[in-house]
Simulated assay, not measured.
Amino acid sequence: MSPFIRSRARLPATLEIEVLDEYGEPRRQAIAAERALTVYLNKREIVTLMTLGADPEALVVGYLRNQGLLARREDLEAVFVDWEVESAAVVTRHLPEDLEERLGRRTVTTGCGQGTVFGRLLEAVPTQTLPDTPLRQSVLYGLLENLGAYNETYKSAGAVHGCALCHQAEVLDFVEDVGRHNAVDTLAGHQWLGEARSARADIFYTTGRLTSEMVLKVAQMGIGILVSRSGVTQKGVELAERFGVLLIARAKGRHFQAIHAARRLELDAMPPRRPGDRRG
C-alpha cells in the first residue's frame, strides 16, 4: 500500500447530559453523539454524513469505496477531517469517468437517518465470486455469545447500531455509529487503511436490518455470510441471491432464520424443541 496523509480527528462517541428520572430526581446520563460531517472528494462536495465521530477518516474512505467513487486503495493520497468546519477532504489520483452521472442519480435507502447510494449500484452484478464458506450452527451460536462483550456505546447510551468483521466465532473488528450504513462503511475503511485483521473475515455481523444496501456493501467487501439480530427485506433477499450471500436473520439466543442456506448451513447444534413450538 502506498503512503498517504491522514488526520486522526477522533471525538468521543458519547457525551453526558442531565435528565430527570421517573422520580423527578436529576441524574447524569450518557447519550450518543451525533455530528454532521460534509465529505469532499477532490474539492467536490459529495454528501453530509451524520456520525458519532469516533473514527471519521475510516468512515469517509469506506463510504466512498462502497459508493464506487474510490476504485483502488492505491489511488488515495490524503484524507483530512476538520471538526471546526465539520468537513472531511479526500484526495485521490483518479476519479470515476462517470462521476457526474453517478452523483446525479441518487437512491434514498432504508438506512437509519436515510442512507444514500449513487448511480446504479442496486442494479450491480457481481464483480467477484464470493466464497461459499459453510457455516456451522455451533459456530453461529459461539459468535453471538462473543458479540455480547461489545456494544459499549449502545450499553451506555443506546441509539446506535453496531457492525463487526468476524472469522467464524471470533470478532476481528467492531464498530458502532448512529446508522448501520456508517458502521459498515467504517469497517470497509478499516480494510483499506490496514487497521483490521480483515484478511481472515468470512462473516459480517450487523445489529440492523438486512436491506439491499447492507447486502451490497458486504458483497463489495468480499464476504459471503451476513448475520443480523434483525429482519430482512425483499430487495435484500434478491440481492443476496444475486451475489451469493448467505443471510442469517433474527439471530438472537438460539433462534435464527437462514436464507439461501442450501448446502452451506450445517445444523450441528439444534436446540431441543419445546412443547407447543410450531414446525415449518
Rank of each mutant, 00 (worst) to 15 (best):
P126R: 12
P126A: 13
L147N: 08
T129K: 15
A157F: 03
E152L: 11
L144E: 08
E176L: 01
C163M: 02
C166L: 01
G142E: 04
R136Y: 06
V171T: 04
L172K: 07
H167N: 14
D173R: 13
L147G: 05
A157T: 06
L172H: 08
N151Y: 11
D177G: 00
C163Y: 03
H161K: 05
L147Y: 03
E170K: 01
G148M: 02
L147F: 07
L165F: 02
H161N: 07
N146A: 11
E170F: 05
D173W: 05
T153K: 07
V125N: 12
V125F: 13
D177T: 02
N151F: 15
H167S: 11
G162H: 02
P131C: 15
R136M: 14
Y154N: 13
T127F: 09
G158V: 03
Y154I: 02
H161D: 03
V171D: 03
P131A: 14
E145S: 12
G142C: 10
L140Y: 07
L140C: 09
E176M: 02
A169C: 06
N146P: 04
T133P: 08
R136S: 15
A149Q: 10
D177S: 04
G148P: 01
T133W: 10
N151R: 15
P131S: 12
E170L: 01
S138Q: 15
V178G: 04
